[in-house]
Design a protein around this nucleic acid. Structure first.
Lengths: 200, 200
DNA sequence: TGTACATCAGTGAACGCGCGTTCACTGATGTAC
DNA sequence: TGTACATCAGTGAACGCGCGTTCACTGATGTAC
């Protein structure tokens, strides 16, 4: 039963969207093609009408994840320089290292979701990941009014803090929250954002 | 062909050691029991003479990884307070975020190696990981002459920096090295260790 | 505009493969006498 | 100390299972005339 082009494109988009959430939640290897397709309301056989292979889907999911992650940080960079941008940056950091962000199942941040796995993936996944990370660092540097080294250091703190908080969250929520609080307070203090309007 | 108790214990230790390297390199799911055993010079059938299951081995490997990781940082904390300890801490950070450490296949740091996977693992693995991380934070706080929040923030930076550097290392070594350099320079600067003897 | 046919998204059974785990067997070690 | 037997680490074939991928088939869509 052939579908209209619009319907087919919508199905493809739904598969990609399901992949994004499920890959972020359980890693590339932890999600079966049949599960992805079922999540999108389809059966597994049709998968190869849309993607050349599972690795191909992984690469597309990686690129899309970065595209979505770049939105919020570019919004910060788009604010007028000065107090307004600084307040937006503070909010971004506090949201990134929040309990809500930690507990969100389909994590938005591709560095946290795919960082550990990406070096074991196909060259295509690696290339898209690398370009995405580089773009993220550029956007963060713009949002910080600083250079790439500063942005790289901040990215490390964000990614490390969220990774650690997630890793102990199921068993030791107190430790997990303490890590989040410590990381975001140090960042805010260090960037001189303590006086800006924020979540606190 | 029954072996002596000593021989059997040595074989078990060799399997565990192989597990540590291989798990760190490719993740828990990326290593087959038969490969582990072959790496230890044995055949796969005998695995269950030593471990109840693969998950059981994972938990033991996790605990051992933390035990080994704690050694160096406890050595730093054991130095006399003052310049000597600060120089040792600087050296620790610079080694942790070095190109050599990034390229080491069987990574020593369990947070980087297992952090992303641990929340998908058995409760036993999670519990051992949580205790290990907590002990690491305590040891780092002692080495820093600071509180747990400071140690948590530093751990985040270390783990995030090494994770990011590893994730882009195969394809973009320049970016990878820039991340390492940025992370370690910011840490040294921030901890006021710039004047101490170090690798630079 | 209407008709005939090629296209192709989706279906579900089937494939080959590698995995974790089990099991009957082997034979040197450890132990009871 | 010497002998007989139980123990158990290691072997390698076999198991059941889930995976990524393929394939013959279906039938509505898109297109050529």
């Amino acid at each position: 039963m052939r579908l209209s082009k619009e319907q087919a494109a919508e199905n493809r988009a739904r598969v990609l969207d399901a992949a994004l959430s499920l890959f972020a939640e359980r890693g590339f290897a932890g999600v079966a093609v049949s599960e992805l397709m079922a999540d999108a309301g389809l059966t597994h056989g049709g998968f190869y009408n849309h993607f050349a292979s599972k690795a191909d889907l992984e690469a597309e999911a990686c690129a899309l994840a970065f595209e979505r992650a770049l939105g919020p940080i570019r919004k910060v960079a788009a604010k007028p320089a000065g107090p307004e941008r600084r307040a937006a940056l503070k909010l971004y950091v506090e949201r990134y290292l929040s309990e809500r962000s930690r507990d969100a199942r389909g994590a938005r941040c591709p560095m946290v979701a795919f960082g550990a796995d990406v070096s074991r993936e196909s060259a295509d996944v690696q290339a898209r990941y690398g370009r995405g990370l580089s773009a993220y660092i550029d956007a963060l540097a713009a949002a910080m009014d600083a250079g790439r080294p500063q942005a790289m250091a901040l990215t490390s703190e964000l990614v490390g803090g969220l990774t650690l908080a997630r890793s102990v969250a199921p068993g030791d929520r107190a430790l997990s929250t303490a890590i989040l609080v410590a990381a975001r307070e140090k960042i805010v203090e260090r960037l001189g954002l303590a006086g800006e309007a924020g979540v606190d």
